[in-house]
Every structure is written in structure tokens, then in C-alpha cells.
Amino acid sequence: MSEAAAAKRAVRKAARGKAVRGKTAVTFAARLDLEHVWRRYGEAYALQDVTLEVPASTVLCLLGPSGCGKTTLLRIAAGVERPSSGRVLVDAEEVAGPNRFVSPEKRGVGLMFQDFALFPHLSILDNVAFGLRSLTKSQGRAEALHALERVGLAQYAKEYPHILSGGEQQRVALARAIAPRPGVILMDEPFSGLDSQLREAMREDTLAIVREARATCIVVTHDAEEAMRMGDRVALMQKGRIVQTGTAPELYRAPSTLFAARVFSDLNEMRSTVRGGRAETPLGTFPAKGLAEGTDAIVCVRQSGVRLLKPGKGTPGRILDTRFLGDVGLVEVAVQGLDDPVLARVREADVPEKGAEVGVAVDEGAILVFEAGNGDEGPSP
């Protein structure tokens, strides 16, 4: 049976409602490296001396707030933009640099945009086959159909994008990205337009497809939880720079700056001064490793690390307010010596009454101490 006939048969089978999700074709994963990349727009810098290594078959999440340069970095990796200086290498071959620039379609890179960027005048099958220019028409349609089968949408091959929901359009965009079997897949906040339940399902499904394909992948996100759940590694960006790279546990447990700590945890922050290697606060005195005597410090306590005790134990406190958050409650506690209330996340069943007297204690593992100003405003250009 010819490939064209096989493709038509699969479409008819899908239309009868018998299609199942297939397996993703394995790609030859490529290593991606960015070396000292800068991007300047007039007098403003979107990227400043970015160096990033993404080993083959690694899923790396590029995390940071809006406007920090994540999308610009992704577009430079894809070849949609040129760096002002620096180099981009795919499997040690320079694809962007002072003396060479390889067009996006020749880099072996698949790009999935935030808005999906589907062509409304093309069928769903033709949308997925659009980038398969090196194949014959029948081969391209067969590969496109295989990709649609993997995302569970082969039954819509002859339809047009406007009939699909947001989640289904996201799947079509993913099918189009994996159809050419790229060595690197780049995704720009692919789940941001979906509701929370659908976003979680699509995140897990997308990750499974990328794992099956064994492709190298960069996922841009501003959601720390998403980055921790999806990424083998996480690169945290701030104001055009990479400020820390590592596994999710490394970044959570040992953030290098106050900015990084705030990204990964809900914190209580208290001013202090280092005396004898320790930082004193109304909640206790804690080790301040690496900080010199007399250094102004900020002591951070994770909200999940605050424990509420019976009156007479720990530091005295009084409940100011409580907020119901489902399985947990957010409790505001007034503590003498602190201008701001201490926030604690406790089991919903353990939330005390407003106005109750309590004791407050903190877990040592929930303490982070930084020099005041360390990474708070971001690195200088």
C-alpha cells in the first residue's frame, strides 16, 4: 500500500471514531548552546551576556517574569531574530554568530508559539504538514497525519482550526512542531491561554510526547510550579540575564538571590543585622553563613515552614485574619517586634479562630538568609 493510500485510510478510520493515539516518532536529539548572547534594541538591552547549555534530550524550562527576555532568547535560538553579538550552536555547529546565520527552516528546530499561529485557511492536516517541504506531498501528509494521531486529533484532519477548542488548537500546534522530527523543540508559554484544569492535562500530555520523541526542548514559562514539574533543569532569568540554572530541587532549596527565593516560595521577610555569624529576628536567631559581621541581612521564612503552637510555646502571637484556600488556610499572625504580620500556610482543619492567642515557631529548613539587596533589583548591565 502506498503512503498516500495509507494516509487516506487512516483519515477514514479516524473519521469513524476508531482512531487512537499513536506513538511519537523518535528524533535525533541535538545539543543547543548559546554563548555570550546579547540583544540590543536601540539603547535598551533585552539580553545581556546570556550563556546557556542544553544537553541533548533535556527538557529545560526558561523561567522568569514578563519582560525579562525569555521570548527574545527563544526567538534567537529558533532563528526568528539575530543576536546583536554572541553565538548559537546546534550540535556544536554555529547557526548564528558574527560570520554565519542559518535560516530557521534549516536549523532542525521546531517552534511552538504562544498563540498557536495556525493558518485559518488551511485544513488541520495541511497546517501540520506546512513545514514538511522537503518531503513529497503524499509523504508530508502521511507524516502530518501520524503527528495528529499522536495528539488524538486525526479525526479532524479535514476540518479547519476555527472548529477546535483552545486545547485542541494547542495540540495541533504541538503536532506541527513534532511532525518534522526536529532535534530541538522550542515552546513559548504554550499553556498560558488554557484554563487551569486543561492546562495541567495538556502539560502532562505534552511532556509525555516530548519524552517519547526524545527531543531536546526549551519551554518558556512564568509559572514556577510549571517549570519545576516539567523541566529536567530550570534556567531563571531576570532583566535579560540568566541568574541561576539547576534542577528544580537545587533552585528551590538553595536559591542564589532573594529574587530567586521569591520566585520559588511564598516568603515572610524580616530585616536583621549579622552578629556573631547569626541573624536575630523576633522569631528566633538563625545562621547567616557567608555573611560578614555587621552585614544588613534579610531573613526569609517560607510560609509553609511556620508552625502554630498552643499558647505559651514558641514566640507569642495573635491571629489577625484567616483565608480559606481549599486544602490549606492562609493565616495572618501578629508578632511583637514585627511591623508586618507573619503569614502561615496550615492545614484547613487546623486553622485557628480569628483573635486566638497562639505560639509561633519556624522550621530550620524553611529559613533563607540573604545580604540586603542581593539580587533584589537584578544584576547591573
Score class of each variant (00 low, 15 high):
residue 176 R to D: 11
residue 244 Q to N: 10
residue 216 T to L: 06
residue 340 D to M: 05
residue 246 G to I: 04
residue 205 D to F: 12
residue 188 D to T: 07
residue 44 A to D: 11
residue 197 Q to H: 05
residue 90 V to P: 08
residue 254 A to P: 01
residue 326 G to F: 05
residue 321 D to V: 15
residue 241 R to K: 10
residue 291 L to K: 04
residue 177 A to T: 02
residue 23 K to E: 15
residue 55 P to Y: 02
residue 77 A to Y: 10
residue 158 K to L: 12
residue 27 T to M: 10
residue 323 R to I: 12
residue 265 S to L: 02
residue 101 F to M: 10
residue 184 V to P: 04
residue 107 R to L: 01
residue 90 V to D: 07
residue 244 Q to M: 08
residue 374 N to K: 13
residue 273 T to V: 10
residue 324 F to N: 05
residue 288 A to P: 00
residue 371 E to K: 15
residue 81 E to S: 11
residue 26 V to H: 03
residue 5 A to H: 11
residue 296 D to Y: 06
residue 149 E to S: 13
residue 68 C to A: 12
residue 39 R to K: 15
residue 108 G to P: 09
residue 75 R to T: 08
residue 77 A to S: 14
residue 212 E to S: 11
residue 217 C to V: 05
residue 184 V to H: 00
residue 153 L to N: 04
residue 84 S to E: 13
residue 181 R to Q: 13
residue 275 R to K: 13
residue 302 R to D: 05
residue 106 K to S: 14
residue 219 V to G: 07
residue 271 R to G: 13
residue 234 V to A: 10
residue 222 H to K: 04
residue 63 L to W: 08
residue 268 N to A: 01
residue 158 K to G: 15
residue 281 T to Q: 11
residue 121 H to K: 03
residue 136 T to V: 00
residue 133 R to G: 13
residue 37 V to D: 04
residue 241 R to S: 12
residue 222 H to T: 08
residue 111 L to M: 11
residue 178 I to Y: 02
residue 65 P to N: 12
residue 64 G to Y: 07
residue 189 E to T: 02
residue 97 G to Y: 00
residue 222 H to C: 09
residue 181 R to A: 11
residue 328 V to K: 12
residue 109 V to Q: 06
residue 358 V to E: 03
residue 87 R to L: 09
residue 86 G to E: 09
residue 77 A to M: 06
residue 157 A to N: 08
residue 129 A to W: 00
residue 30 A to M: 03
residue 300 C to V: 00
residue 207 L to F: 07
residue 190 P to Y: 07
residue 13 K to W: 05
residue 84 S to A: 08
residue 226 E to N: 12
residue 126 D to P: 04
residue 270 M to I: 15
residue 233 R to A: 05
residue 304 S to G: 06
residue 113 F to C: 06
residue 205 D to M: 11
residue 260 A to M: 01
residue 48 Q to R: 15
residue 350 D to N: 01
residue 120 P to D: 12
residue 272 S to A: 15
residue 37 V to E: 05
residue 359 G to N: 11
residue 242 I to Q: 01
residue 97 G to S: 04
residue 344 A to N: 04
residue 228 M to T: 09
residue 60 L to T: 02
residue 278 R to D: 10
residue 340 D to Y: 02
residue 86 G to P: 05
residue 256 S to M: 09
residue 320 L to H: 05
residue 85 S to D: 15
residue 340 D to K: 14
